[in-house]
Simulated assay, not measured.
Amino acid sequence: MALITICGYPCSGKSTRAEQIRTFLQSKLGIPDAVSAPPAAESSATSSPSAPSNAPTPQLQVFTVSDDSLNLPRSVYNESRSEKPARGALLSAMQRHANAGTVLIVDAPNYIKGFRYQMYCIARELRLRVCTVYVIATPDVCKERNDARIQSGAATAYTPETLDNLIMRFEEPSSMVRWDSPLISMLWTDEGIPGQQVWDAVTKGDVKPPNAGTQAVPKAPSSALHTLEHTTSALVSSILSEQSAAGGSFTSSSSTSIPVTPTLTVRLALPQRALTLSELQRLKRQFVTVHKKAITLGTVEKGEVDWGEEAVAGKFGRYLEENLKQ
């Protein structure tokens, strides 16, 4: 249904806002909290075990994926070599949970615009609405909150060096770019959330078609090259055999049935003259070269991904009809 990306400085209040948004959306959707609460850890079940077995399953759900739900400590942000796998785990979890029946909230620093763009492309591929929530707080406020966490021994505290580094590297979202739009901003001093804006974004926002660059290219089967070579050669041999049986040339103006295999026959409108092996081989090479390139590069004709014997024979037959001159 929709992807909501939460971003902001560390300790700016992102998790608080994510929980407020989750509660608000569940209330609007009429989903009991016990049914739709996100898993405490990624390895646990997606639905609450305390829900009655005969309880009706809601059509829509609201999940939150975060560092905490993945059991990722804040220390993963101390070094890039530990942060990259953590971002990969977050992206994988987002891909697993994103679907047409879920409003997915990604509660993480999300401070790199390239990472937000990755999530945006996945959402477009799944035809989900998107929304970015920017929680704004000053660096001083974030540092004060982090210091309080350090003093209390909270697991959500960052080292001062890591906090400064993340704040310095933060790439602010912009409503001018498509992967951050629509952008909903809220200050750390705001008591509530702009719930109606979020609701409109996840229920009425535009569903953009997948990017051409994100769509999977149809691949030809591993046997396509063999089928291409074998079928075209068989059709050339059959044409020459049928021509020889007809007295050296095709004299009928109507199409001729050419057997390719014991179970496959192609009807062709061939010129009323003697066809030579050299011209048939030349056309065969041209046809195979073009289609071999399509197979090896994975760029098959849009809507035509059938590389079976019948399809190849039909294509080659039409190619011969168009290129054999009277």
Rank of each mutant, 00 (worst) to 15 (best):
T57R: 12
P56V: 05
P38N: 04
T46P: 12
P52V: 05
S66E: 05
P58A: 07
F24L: 05
R17E: 00
D33I: 11
A55W: 14
D33T: 13
S48C: 11
S47R: 07
P38F: 05
T57S: 07
R22S: 11
L25N: 10
S50K: 09
A41C: 05
V35T: 11
S48Y: 02
D67R: 09
D67I: 04
D67F: 15
K28R: 15
S44C: 00
D33A: 15
F63D: 03
P49N: 03
A34N: 14
P56H: 06
Q26N: 14
F24S: 09
S43F: 12
E19M: 12
Q26C: 14
V62P: 00
S53N: 08
Q61K: 02
A37R: 04
P38S: 15
G30C: 10
P38T: 02
Q61G: 13
Q26Y: 01
A40F: 09
A18M: 07
T16N: 11
V62R: 05
A18H: 09
F24R: 07
R22K: 13
Q20Y: 03
R22T: 03
K28G: 00
V62G: 00
P32M: 06
E42P: 03
A34E: 06
A34L: 15
T57C: 00
V65F: 05
G13N: 12
L25S: 07
P58F: 08
I21T: 06
Q26F: 03
T46H: 02
P39G: 04
S53E: 13
Q26I: 05
P32E: 04
I21G: 02
S53P: 00
S15A: 01
